[in-house]
Structure formats: C-alpha cells, structure tokens
Amino acid sequence: MTGAYALHALPDDEHAAFERHLAGCEPCARETAELSAAVARLGLTATVTPPAALREQVLRRIPCVRQEPPGVGTAVRAGRAGRRARPLSRWALAACLAAAAALGGTTVWQHQRAEDALHRASGARQGADEVAAVLAAPDARARTAALGGGATGTVVVSRGRDEAVFAATGMARPAAGKVYQLWFDHDGTMRPAGLMDPARTDQAVLLRGGVDGASGVGVTVEPAGGSSAPTSAPVALLGLPV
C-alpha cells in the first residue's frame, strides 16, 4: 500500500489504517518517505507552455457556460469514482478555475473572476517553474525524513544554483492564526527562508535566499506573517544533502 499512500489514492478508512501501521513499521515508513519524495520531484518537474490564445478562448466561452443544476455534480462524481483521472496541466487547471468562476453569475462578475483566476494561475506557474528548475538541476541532491504524524519532508538542494526547495506531504494544518515558517540552519543560528501555505498539507516551497553555507533546514510554527527569529522549537530539522 506504500505506493497508493504516497499518491493519496487510498480510501479514507484504508488511509487511516495504513497510517496506524506506519507508526510501528520502520521499513514501510522509509519506503513511503522515499516514494513521496519521488512523487514530489516527478510531479513538480512537468511544465507546459500555454497556447498564446488560451486566455482569450477561456474568456470568450465563459458567457456560454450554463450553471449545473443541483445534484448533477454529485452524480457525475459518483459515476467517475474508481476511475483513474488523467492529470491536468497547470494551464488546463487555470482554464477549469476560470470556467468554474463563471457558473451562475453576471457577465461582469464572470469576467472579473476569470481574470483573478488567470492571474493566480500565472503566479502559481511562475513559482512552480522556479521550484522545477531546482528539482531538475543536474546537481540536485535530496534528503527525506519522516516528520511525525505520517508527514514527510524532503529538502532538495542545487549547489550550482545556490537554491533549495522544501517539499512536504501530509503535514497537519497549523492552528488558526499560525503558519509554518522555513529557516536555513547555520549551525544553530536560524535565517528566515519563507512561509508555507497554512491551507495546504502537501506543497513544495522555494526557500528564500541562497543556501550560503547553511547546514540544514528547519520548520517552526510562528504567528501569521512570520517572525524574524524562531519563537518555538522546530517541528522539523533536516540536514542538507551533501
């Protein structure tokens, strides 16, 4: 079940049962961590250049999209259960977001929501491209560790680019008003390296600033907006791969 767990493909009951098993099985925990790291690297290195006319095509079709009647979405999802879905490219996802924003509103509202979705998708694509550049670097090296509670953390470093990425899977959401903050560890001295999205349990973040001789990466829980220095003990501390 390690492969299905790493791909988040287990039903809820099997997912919970496997996490209980992981707590007492070191071989499965190690294999799951390795597979989760591989999934993160393979998934994030795929980039697609959008067609030049995509934005105009999406906006032109928005007024023609009819709102789905109640119950249809549930029936469609139930009919598709158990079938493996084809992964969407980032820009296909952007088109879906724009179309979803259009359902059931006025033309002006539709247009604005579509614009917002496309802007967000553009920013997400730029960030994903930066992460992918590190993961695909010829000198990229990775280190993976279990973070507790079934979560897994992976640090990928490119010395040539002087950049690092932290990828996490299965992290519990922080408490309200809190955020996970990333740090470069310089032999016990922590340097701020960015914030994680508190709403996501699986994500990859390009660490802010160069690696610059750091020996590891730490994660702490901080007030929303982050701190200039850690205010809590690290929930994770990973040495950088050599």
Rank of each mutant, 00 (worst) to 15 (best):
L97D: 13
A78Q: 09
C96H: 15
L103C: 11
L103F: 12
H119I: 13
T107M: 10
A121Y: 01
A99S: 12
R120L: 15
R120A: 15
P87A: 04
Q110P: 02
W109V: 06
R80S: 06
S89H: 05
S122V: 06
L88C: 05
P87D: 05
A102N: 04
G79P: 01
A94G: 06
G79T: 00
R83T: 12
T74L: 11
H119C: 13
A117Y: 00
G82T: 04
A114L: 04
C96K: 14
L97P: 00
P87E: 05
C96M: 14
A78Y: 03
R77S: 09
A92E: 15
V108E: 14
L103R: 15
Q110I: 01
A81R: 13
Q110F: 01
E68D: 10
A92G: 13
E68K: 08
A117K: 01
A100H: 10
H111D: 10
G105E: 10
A75P: 00
R113F: 03
R86K: 14
A114E: 02
A99C: 15
E115T: 09
L97S: 09
D116T: 10
H119E: 14
A75Q: 08
A102K: 01
T107P: 07
S122Y: 06
R86M: 10
G105A: 09
S122N: 06
A100Y: 07
W91T: 01
Q67G: 15
G71D: 06
E68G: 09
G71C: 07
P87C: 05
L88S: 08
R83L: 14
L103P: 03
S122P: 01
A81M: 12
V76M: 07
C96Y: 14
R66H: 12
G105N: 08
R80V: 02
A99Q: 12
E115F: 09
A95V: 04
G71F: 07
G82D: 03
L118D: 01
Q112K: 11
A81D: 11
G104I: 03
G71A: 08
A99V: 15
T107G: 11
E68H: 08
W109L: 08
A117T: 00
G105K: 07
G104P: 02
R80N: 06
A101I: 00
T74A: 14
